[in-house]
Every structure is written in structure tokens, then in C-alpha cells.
């Protein structure tokens, strides 16, 4: 077992040769490409991160712009709505006034018409009454041609009518 702790320095020589060769070869063939690949990837990641940042900033800018534009639009819409409402109210007022005016006109003309109709009807009626009275008077006259009393009676009747309806007298006066 003493051989365990009795190093054979020839093997140390081989170890050093082996290791130094490895050092030289691996530096060229393994570590440099590995470091390059890692750097490349890190660079790629960095670029990707930067472009992502940029895109985020851009997106935020666009969002802010849209927001402000939206706010502007909103206030504009509000204004226009307000305007429209005002205009509508004004129109309504105007229309109402118009309608009221025309209604008043219609009512006035209707009243006039009614008045005219009534006057017409009255005239008609008076004529009729006069006719009927004349007919009645005719009848009476035929029977009592010479009766003085009848004339008196008729005169009395007419007087009574005139007393009751002075307008008939006026109308009759006009006609």
C-alpha cells in the first residue's frame, strides 16, 4: 500500500503534457467558439430586449395620443350634442309658437265663420218668420178682411215681437 503515497513523477510529466496540450487545443477549438456563441446570443437578447423596449415606448406613445384624441372627440361630441339640443329646443319653441299662432288664426277664422253662419241663419229664420207671419196674417186677413179688431190684434202682436226682440227690429231695419 505504500505505493499509494509514493508518486511516480513520470506520470506527473504525462499529466502536465496532457493538460498543457488540452489547454492549448481547447482554447482554440472549444472555449473561443463557446464564448463567441454565448456573446452572440447575449447580444441578440440585448437587441431583442431593446427593440421590445422601443416597441413598448412607441405603443405607449400611440396609446397616449389616442387617449388624448379620444378625449378631444368626446368633448367635441358633447359640445355638438349640447348644440343640437339647444337648436332642437329653439326649433321646438319656434314650432310651438307657430302652431299656437296658426291655431289662434284658425280659431279666429272659425269664430268669424261661425258668426257669419249664425247671422246667415238668423237672417234666414227672420225671413221665414216674416213669411210665416205674412202667411198667418194672410189667413187671418182672408177671414177678417174688414175686421178692425184683427188689425189691432196683428199690430199688437208685432209690437210685442218688437218689444221682445229688439234685434229683429234692427235687422229688419237694416234689410
Amino acid at each position: 500500500m505504500e505505493a499509494l503515497i509514493r508518486p511516480d513523477f513520470g506520470l506527473s510529466f504525462w499529466t502536465i503534457v496532457c493538460f498543457v496540450l488540452l489547454l492549448v487545443i481547447l482554447r482554440k477549438t472549444a472555449w473561443t467558439p463557446l464564448i463567441n456563441a454565448i456573446n452572440e446570443r447575449e447580444e441578440g437578447l440585448r437587441i431583442a430586449r431593446e427593440s421590445t423596449d422601443q416597441a413598448r415606448i412607441e405603443a405607449e406613445r400611440v396609446r397616449d395620443e389616442l387617449n388624448s384624441r379620444l378625449a378631444g372627440l368626446k368633448s367635441e361630441i358633447k359640445e355638438q350634442l349640447e348644440d343640437a339640443r339647444k337648436t332642437a329646443a329653439r326649433e321646438k319653441e319656434a314650432m310651438l309658437a307657430d302652431a299656437r299662432k296658426s291655431a289662434a288664426g284658425i280659431i279666429a277664422s272659425a269664430k268669424k265663420e261661425i258668426e257669419a253662419e249664425r247671422a246667415e241663419a238668423l237672417r234666414d229664420m227672420k225671413k221665414r218668420v216674416a213669411e210665416i207671419s205674412l202667411m198667418a196674417a194672410g189667413q187671418v186677413l182672408r177671414k177678417n178682411m174688414n175686421s178692425k179688431a184683427n188689425e189691432e190684434l196683428a199690430g199688437q202682436f208685432l209690437a210685442e215681437i218688437e218689444k221682445d226682440r229688439p234685434d229683429l227690429k234692427a235687422e229688419a231695419g237694416n234689410n
Binding site: 506520470l11 496532457c18 488540452l22 481547447l26 477549438t29
Partner: peptide
């Protein structure tokens, strides 16, 4: 006196493994 031994063989195997396999994989 340089020994040619089993441990040397192991080192040579390791050497070849590292020199061939490592760059290949990388």
C-alpha cells in the same frame, strides 16, 4: 523513466474525449 500505465491510458482517453467531443458538441 516515463511510465506507460493504466492511468496514462485514462488520461489519453480523457484527452481524446475532450479534444474530439467537446468541440464537436459546441
Amino acid at each position: 523513466h516515463l511510465p506507460v500505465s493504466k492511468h496514462l491510458l485514462m488520461m489519453v482517453i480523457a484527452f481524446i474525449l475532450l479534444v474530439v467531443v467537446l468541440p464537436f458538441i459546441i
